[in-house]
Amino acid sequence: MPVTLRAKCLIVGDSAVGKSALTQVFHSDGAHFPKGYSMTVGVELCVKNISIPDTNDTVELYIYDTAGKETYSDYAQQAWEHPSVMMVVMDVTNENSFMACNRWVERVKAKAGQHIPGVFVANKTDLEGRRVVERNKAEEFAKGKGLEYFECSAKEQNNTDAPFYYLANAYYKLYQERVEVMKTIAS
């Protein structure tokens, strides 16, 4: 019988960077990109199963799409408890959204209280002409924070699945490592 792991994936970042768009494109297998902007209040939850390559196992991702506006973040404090993995999102056309990422990462880390796998996602790469955040700067930040770096466009549905797959696989690997420790401790 295959194993199903469960992970809570917290998606954070400034408002309007595309957290909900990424979540919805991924969750709908690319069937749905929200064309109009609708601000997330509190938190929205969706669940998706991800198959782990070369196994029959899956990771059930509980994706918590959180509000980027501070006004709403107190609201949803409970949703922030005990994250398993994190996704920090910025908009490549918005320098401030990049500057804010340090605060978002630290906040999630404080909530987690332990190491959790994470990705740093640079969204809206389709707006090449308006891009202000350079790739090497973003990569450097990700590296410094121990996050895997991805560039994507939720609008063009380009590379949007990759960060989610990365997180599911990293979590799966963590489980494999932990049960090895359990075996060693018990013997």
Partner: peptide
């Protein structure tokens, strides 16, 4: 939680070498 490699029956088999592993979240 159920990972067949670490089933809950391991809790009551009298051995501490075998175990039941949880598979994420509380």
């Amino acid at each position: 939680s159920s990972d067949e490699n670490f089933p809950p029956e391991n809790i009551i088999d009298g051995k501490s070498e075998t175990f039941w592993a949880t598979t994420g979240l509380f």
